[in-house]
Computed example of a mutant assay.
Amino acid sequence: MGLIDIINLLFSIIIRAIDIYSILLIIYILMSWVPASRETKFGIFLGKITEPYLGFFRKFIPPLGMIDISPIVAIFVLNYLISSGIREVYRLIIASLM
């Protein structure tokens, strides 16, 4: 296995982890619509995983009345800004190795 193969594997794992985390964020957000679902073992587990990331955005983005838009911003940042940045770093690394 060459260096490029290792880099490909590493970056594909990172991108896949971001995709899975995005899905977990969406599930956690949707759980807020179902009363007491966040108090289940699964809800508590998701809260431990997602609240640190969501909490960062909640510090800066206040709710608009009854609507909390910080999860939307958090998912956007994760899926578009962070993923795009990682893909660009990948492209630069691969280009420098060629």
Rank of each mutant, 00 (worst) to 15 (best):
E39Y: 01
S12Q: 13
T50F: 01
R58K: 13
F42K: 08
R16W: 11
I20R: 00
V34G: 00
M1N: 07
I29M: 11
F57W: 11
L78G: 04
L10P: 05
I14R: 10
G2S: 14
M31I: 10
S22K: 03
I44M: 02
I15S: 04
I29H: 02
R38A: 02
A17G: 14
E88P: 00
G47L: 06
K41W: 13
A36T: 12
I93V: 10
E39K: 01
I26R: 11
G43W: 06
R91K: 10
I61N: 04
R38V: 00
E51I: 09
I18L: 10
P71D: 10
A74R: 04
I69W: 06
S84F: 11
L30W: 10
V34A: 05
L97S: 00
I94H: 04
L78P: 01
M98K: 14
K59L: 06
S22E: 09
T40L: 03
G85K: 14
T40S: 13
F56R: 09
I49R: 01
I6T: 08
L78I: 03
I82A: 07
L64G: 08
F60N: 05
E39S: 02
S32Y: 10
L9W: 03
G43I: 03
F60R: 10
K41G: 14
P52H: 10
I27Q: 12
G43N: 05
Y90L: 14
G55S: 14
I94T: 02
P52Q: 08
D5K: 11
Y21C: 04
I93F: 04
L3W: 13
A95I: 08
M31G: 08
D68F: 12
V34Y: 02
P62I: 03
